[in-house]
């Protein structure tokens, strides 16, 4: 009985490592795969694994929102659009031609890693009562409707503008096609 209890009590930590592994694994597939659909599916896998990571850390609200918004809506739309466009697997150029790409992405990755290592000490260390610092849905709502009201509304306007822009672009494209 005690063994079973210990096994289950250790599960969240194991779960966290598994989720992290899959997040990185799918991210690599997004990067490596030449098939756009595989990329989109793997992107969804990454987003979902990240949500699983939040769950294993005890922050259920952020995890649920991550699935609802990113994995459930945005990634599905990605897959949907890629399927509609019927993209064929891209033929990758040979290595010398891709050298600038490798150099640039390596530079960005290096800078990010440097940034991470320099700032890792600033992040508060996890303690026994770190679950107490996790905000509830009500607290999030209170922050968004009081302290961060203006940025919150501005973000909404930004998204609205983006939607209008997308419609204008799509309509314009259609209009040209009709004339020609």
């Amino acid at each position: 009985m005690n063994q079973a209890t210990d096994l289950i009590a250790g599960a969240p930590t194991v779960f966290m490592w598994v989720a992290s592994f899959f997040a990185i694994f799918f991210a690599l597939i997004v990067f490596v795969s030449s098939n756009p659909i595989s990329c989109a599916v793997a992107l969804m896998g990454t987003l979902f694994s990240t949500a699983a990571l939040y769950f294993s850390l005890g922050n259920f609200f952020v995890g649920a929102i991550q699935i609802l918004v990113y994995a459930g809506a945005i990634a599905v739309l990605f897959v949907f659009i890629v399927m509609l466009l019927d993209l064929k697997p891209q033929k990758l150029k040979n290595l010398p031609g891709r050298l600038p790409h490798f150099l640039f992405s390596g530079l960005v990755a290096g800078l990010l890693a440097l940034f991470l290592f320099r700032t890792i000490d600033l992040v508060p260390k996890a303690t026994e009562d770190s679950s107490a610092s996790i905000l509830s849905a009500t607290q999030y709502a209170q922050y968004f409707l009081s302290q961060y009201q203006v940025p919150f509304q501005a973000a909404g306007l930004l998204v609205f503008g983006a939607i209008l822009g997308a419609i204008v672009l799509a309509r314009g494209h259609l209009g040209k096609k009709e004339h020609s």
């Binding site: 599916v41 969804m44 979902f48 949500a51 259920f60 609200f61 995890g63 649920a64 929102i65 699935i67 609802l68 994995a71 459930g72 809506a73 599905v76 897959v79 949907f80 399927m83 509830s136 849905a137």
Partner: peptide
């Protein structure tokens, strides 16, 4: 604590199997 959201979130994954 966010069971309702969780239910909604996981259900939104259902479309993915059909699409795939």
């Amino acid at each position: 604590s966010v069971g309702l959201l969780f239910l909604l979130a996981i259900n939104s994954m259902h479309v993915f199997s059909v699409l795939t």
